[in-house]
Design a protein around this nucleic acid. Sequence first.
DNA 1: AGCACGCCGACT
DNA 2: GTCGGCGTGCTC
Length: 810
Amino acid sequence: VADTPVVAAFAEVAVPLPLAGALTYSVPANLEPLARPGCRVRVAVGKRRTVGVVLARRAAAPAGIETRPLESVLDLQPVLTGELLELASFVADYYMAPIGEVIRSMLPSALPPWGDRRIWLTDAGALAAPRSEAERAVIEAVREAGRLRLGELQARTGLADLGRIVEDLRAGGRVVVAEENETGARYVTAVDRAPGGLAEQVEAAGRSPAGRAVLEYLAAQGRPATLSELEGEVGASAAVVRRLLGKGLLKKFTQVDHLDLDRHLLAARPGADLTPRPDQAAAIQALCDVVGQRAFAGFLLVGPTGAGKTEVYLRAAQHALASGRSAILLVPEIALVPALAGEARRRFGGELAILHSSLASQERHQEWERIRGGRARVVLGPRSAVFAPLRDVGLIVVDEEQDPAYKQETVPRYQGRDLALVRGRACNAAVVLVSATPSFESRHNRERGKLTGLELTARAGQGRMPEGILVDLRAEKDVGKVGEARFSARLLAELRSTFERGDQAILLRNRRGYAPVLLCRACGEDMRCADCGLPRTYHRKQARLVCHYCGSRVPAPERCPTCGEAALEPVGAGTERVEERFRELFPEVVVDVLDRDAIRRPGGAAALLARFASGEVQALIGTQMVSKGHHFPRVALTAVLAADSYLSFPDFRAVERTYALLTQVAGRAGRGDIPGRVVVQTYHPDHYAIRAALENDDAGFAAEEMRFRRLFHYPPFTRMAQVLIKDRQRARGEGEIAALAARIQQHPLAADLRVSGPAPAPFERLRGEWRFQLLLRGASSSRIHELLRATLPPRSASEIVVDIDPFQLL
DNA sequence: AGCACGCCGACT
DNA sequence: GTCGGCGTGCTC
């Protein structure tokens, strides 16, 4: 952040409203030194008051604008560094999102204002002489009050540059500033040995064995300890500690209590300290070199499941820490955090911070403050962790980089993986994209030399790649009626022998509920959701019909609501029906279901996974959730009940996703010392994605899919943008999209681009709104941006959604 | 996003 | 004659 200009009486403030730019406010003299770029400020907007962030200071207001004053400044230190403010403006620009909403998505919600934090003197602060009049005033006020809110301190001293003075005092160890407001504060008293030799101190402690034990323990640890720790470790009561304090042998501290984040951790796997194989060592070396050189470089780390990719990037992160830099570890979803957090905590200890949305808000704020204060230098979290307020980031890891979850589907619609590269470039970091089945964007970038390929070949330990078994469902006759949960003869045989050996199995069925459709055999009624126009899914246990697109639900009818016949038949099978059929086929096998419905129930995913990991449960049926990240050494068989379910999606990435999913599922089987098997049931046994996944032919698959992408001008050979118009009134939406399409097609820039549509969106109606789209494709994104900026109306009767680099077209 | 202003249908 | 519908404009 540049120094505040001498005359800069105005501030550009990003407010959380859908406004393209920032608003300009005047800076009152008393806030002059406080309102630095990156600090939050309270401002009035229209009739309301809100919290914004100062983007920059400027000497003059825009012509013709009557400015209002900033009301207060909420931070002593900027919450966003200059680097992150620049990243914010990049995101706003590139994804065509309001800057205020970008900033809002970068900060944890409701971060307490600094005025609510408390300040108190340390022993050193109480003794040291003030270095200025202002310091004297601050120290006097704090001494008098004992402990007080910073807001109160500001009121009592009236100092304009209180922020700088408090920071100086804090940096000099003379005051403590709480990291949280009062309600969230968790402080403990800690003690440490006073300066002096241990032998003399033990002597001075007298004959108290507990007192000697305390001193020896503290000397051995070489750090302060809390009272409860001393009680637990050496059995010293508070009275013993008080006596030692009285003799001047100990000194007292107040420190912030460490959060109990252990509930977010799973135990670290054994064997993690094995010497890296040569291919791992080479990859580690390549990453460490870049971290050390402080030059940006992007890598694509590829290797099959179980090849030890995690070990590579964790070691690179250790190197980043050792060289004084910091690291960000991104995972696609929070369900994957615990597995990695255990191992990361083992390596990084208190330097690890975990950021994710299911942390309580106090925990989130505390983690965030630890990061901002430089006390935690490794951050683990989902896509939003790419905005972690770390300084000097040396390494950014994007694990499972092909995962669609890196794309945020609400404003700002950013792609976390791409922003990792943008941030890495800005801070001279190594950025590693990690995958067993890389996205085509990343493969393409590797081929063009924008990413350096790193490859791991061997599977770690004795685990071998599983044997793939393809079942052609077209040839299966006696597996039950079409539309039911289908278990082929081969699958049944494989399941039987797996359970007989006492091994476990995972079954993938990528749909929740009992059946995707409840159909009336008499009249053909299929129970559509009135708002979305699509059939609702039948959930038998809950006796409900649920729309999977908007969540609306109705009781499941006994008779057809249209014709009154009792001829309702479930068509197709979701996890619930697979479970029912499984219980009929294997009554003696204990089975569980893992899907979005299951994890909402009390206990949730963690309890479920623990039961499976312990062997108490032998079979796990689930949606793609079962395919991700978990390590179950006793799983000998995985089965995909219908591999075609994605292929029928009208999405150019459907094939890529099918391939990634099948490869991932296959990776679940046969880790540890058990040889694994994968059964894939399909109606398209010759499809190249299915074949390649079963035969481990990544190169063959990539070549075929690249050919298709090139031929039909899809990413990675083009950049894409989707413009979606939503309106409750169909005719108005159609009118708006037609008008926009006409403007775009007539624009000179459209000559270089491919414009598809206007057309109904893949889901023509969702949540009561009609949806129409235009797709733009071109060689570069800048042309697309230019065209959109020139043709999008500033406002429209319908809602307009612009999605740059869309992932799923809905 | 909210919240105003402003111009056309069914009500005390 | 008004209350209220949501279309349109604006927020420093």
